[in-house]
Design a binder for these strands. Structure first.
Lengths: 247, 247
DNA sequence: ATCGTAGAGTGGTTGGACCACCTTGGGAGT
DNA sequence: ACTCCCAAGGTGGTCCAACCACTCTACGAT
């Protein structure tokens, strides 16, 4: 009796996924053709095809008609589709997203301050340096990419996959959104200087393991980004006094 | 020229989804057979099948071999699969989930305290009454269902779909997990009394619009649940002083 | 050296057949 | 009249072989 069964789509999908995770198929590379995989694994092309479809739906693979099936980079299948159907359901809720992001980034900053290790320190500093360099230059796309990478580094320094997953997927969503909103604006260098300064403050407090200050710095940063980039008013009616580190 | 194109799987998926959202196929009901839909829409069965597969992947539909394809209730496709692949990637991370949940429930309680309206008040009180009744009885399943419904009511009182979405999907995941961990335990009535008391405190502070107290009550509740139900130590190393309302 | 294009390879689609499974209803046995 | 069983029909699941639509590339004409 075979352990694999090899004939069911989900079995194919699992096998493929394992092969990808084991590095057998590198990110960005092309998979063998459907016909090839079918013959190799003694399954019909239909089954292989459906198995691949599952991984496409999960964002692990991409198909290109006439060209082939390609392995996505990990950051690609890291969740953007989580929010996709939600934002389809609720046409525009950027304010709600920012509210959520506010909470997420604050807490992540606190956790990163408490838990980061030597490797995290190095990655955080490198990411910060990259942001600095990008903002000295004029490449808008690069600025956003490095900015997101910086926040990714924080996310990973939390050592909590749930936070990392949500932050990264959220940034991907917001990245697309930002590209649209920033498309026609002029590069306001003083805004960018503010962003860099806020990153500095955030990074310093994390590295100093000052969780409270890190949370405040993250809050300030997100508030600034929301107001300057998207011209959105804060959602909270602010009935009570600002609570704890999130003021 | 046709607006629909009708021949591509994603077109079929969209059409089907729209039909479901318009109530043409009620939740729980059975879809027409693949062969039927194919003939009706002038598409090959394979295409219809692949379109259905997409909606199955999104959790909108379920297939039952030999029986039919069924429309899932909205709460079913409300996100559980978001976490599914993550928990597959990281075998057991209940502590991480609880950490996230801690943050989420605290903030949701705060927002609910600030934003709830008359309708929310009624729903919250009804949900609380249902929990009370369930915990006086002995039905474990009912207790969990009403408990989750109570937290849903809070989630909806935030008036932020992002919070609602994540809380509901997270509860679904934890519900499955709880069923496993609670399966063999004896019903400890004093534990249940604590839970009811904590709900009471949480509800009262929300209805009093005391965001800070609501956040604290939620924190206490989640901590209690984590310790008593799952015997998990808190994840945070607690290097710094407990920060703000989350202590 | 450059450009165009034919051909090969890839994913996408088709139709039909068959398999595995579930549901149902009517007939056999009580 | 009631119960039980199972055969038939319907459903999703799989397979195959061919063809379509698209992309890439290497070869040949210019």
């Amino acid at each position: 009796m075979e352990t694999h069964d090899a004939g069911r789509p989900d079995s194919i999908a699992r096998r493929l996924e394992r092969a990808i995770q084991k590095g057998q198929f590198a990110p960005g590379s092309r998979l063998p053709s459907e016909r090839d995989l079918a013959q190799r694994w003694q399954a019909s092309r239909s089954i292989v095809r459906e198995g691949i479809s599952m991984l496409v739906a999960k964002g692990l693979l991409s198909r290109r008609h006439g060209s082939g099936t390609y392995v996505n980079a990990p950051s690609d299948h890291f969740g953007a589709e989580v929010w996709a159907d939600m934002s389809r359901r609720y046409p525009d809720l950027p304010a709600d997203f920012f509210e959520f992001r506010h909470m997420l980034e604050c807490r992540a900053a606190e956790l990163a301050a408490e838990r980061h290790d030597a490797g995290d320190r190095k990655r955080l500093q490198a990411a910060q340096a990259a942001v600095d360099a990008a903002f000295r230059g004029g490449d808008r796309e690069l600025q956003m990419r490095t900015d997101i990478a910086f926040h990714h580094a924080i996310a990973e320094a939390t050592h909590n996959p749930v936070f990392a997953y949500l932050m990264i997927s959220l940034h991907k969503l917001l990245h697309d959104h930002m590209q649209l909103t920033l498309a026609g604006t002029t590069p306001r260098s003083e805004v960018f200087r503010h962003v860099v300064a806020q990153h500095r403050r955030l990074l310093d407090s994390i590295l100093a393991r000052d969780a409270v200050e890190a949370g405040r710095a993250a809050a300030a940063h997100i508030d600034f980004v929301r107001v300057r980039m998207n011209h959105l008013p804060p959602r909270r009616p602010m009935t009570a006094a600002p609570s704890g580190t999130r003021g």
